[in-house]
Amino acid sequence: MHLTLLIPELLWPEPGDPLAFDGLACPSLETWLGRSRLERSPPRPLEAILARQLGLTENGLAACRLQGETNAPQAADRQWFCADPVHLKFHHDRIILGDASLLALEAAEVEALLASLNATFPDLGRFHAPHPRRWYLEAAADLELPPLPPLSAASGRQLGSLMPESPRFSRLMNELQMLLHDHPVNRAREARRQPTANGLWLWGGGALAAPAATRIERLGADDPLARGMARHLGLISEPAPATLADWPPGPGRQALILLEHLLAPTLIEDSEAWRDAMARLERDWFAPLAAALGKSIARLDLISPTAFGVLHWEIRASDRWKLWRRTPPLAALTRQLALSPENMP
């Protein structure tokens, strides 16, 4: 089997952070990285990498994610946008975008916010929320919005650096923010010192791409976008396994597994949680892979979008004999990548 592991944030973005790297032991991962071939490319969002791996374009990501959310196929002539709630906060006179993972919105809060949005902005279409953190806009037929990056690529960044040059769109975003900021739900949350859902992030719009040919035959993922892509393409789709042992040989010679253990700790800048998640990956995935390569797995591709670009290691069974090749510890590798703007061998 040819296995591709897509693991966002495999390297902590701060090379000198002792809370991330001190005491972190990943001998299996470091061994395989040292004996593999590394291709480094410019940064790209996780969603774009996932689409490319499955032979899709970045059009219609919202419709794909909704399909993975509800299991219902979306009409090809209907346009959807992800309309995810966000928390906008001031930091050094700048507005920083935070995702909805910190909001913990209650169902009644979501219902009240959506009711106000749908009553105030009927010209946009209709808002839906099958999940408290993932909202959607069923767009009006004539609605045109400039593209925004996925929320995974926007979280933690300055709002002004993300916005397109469109006064009309900026005005719309401001109107949405004013409605949400003054909403009774957010006033009550502010009184309880909870983060407020004071903005929406509209991304992933476009016509749903026609199913394309893809080398992947089997997908393991919990992310609704990945599940929706698999359903759109007619692939075998399963939940992401907890360990390599939970991914038994099955149909399909080409498999892709999305492991998101490191993503949430990175987005909330929790280096200790990232280190703990990395230790679990070493135990449950990287160490077992050492025994599986050359047996049940003939080739492994390890792909990770990071602060240092998209890192793609290609590992073949024969690489286990390259005993002369050494890899520095992850902290040292991270420092090397941070200092080098170009590809590394």
Rank of each mutant, 00 (worst) to 15 (best):
P15N: 14
D22I: 02
D22G: 02
L24C: 05
C26T: 14
C26D: 09
T31W: 02
G34A: 04
L38W: 00
R40E: 09
L46R: 07
L50Q: 00
L56A: 04
N59H: 12
R65A: 01
A75G: 02
W80L: 13
V86F: 04
F90A: 09
H91P: 04
D93C: 03
L102E: 15
A112H: 04
W135P: 02
Y136G: 00
P147M: 07
L148Q: 07
S155M: 07
Q158V: 09
Q158Y: 10
Q158E: 13
S166G: 07
R168L: 11
L172H: 09
E175H: 14
L180M: 00
H181G: 11
H181Y: 14
H183Y: 06
R189P: 01
R193T: 11
A197H: 06
L200F: 01
W203Y: 09
G204T: 14
T214A: 13
I216G: 14
D222E: 10
L233I: 00
E238F: 12
P239R: 09
A245P: 00
E260N: 08
P265K: 05
T266I: 07
L267K: 15
A273G: 00
A277C: 05
M278D: 09
E282F: 02
A292T: 04
R299D: 15
L302P: 03
V310I: 06
L311V: 10
L311G: 05
H312M: 11
L323C: 09
T327P: 13
P328T: 14
A331P: 04
S340E: 15
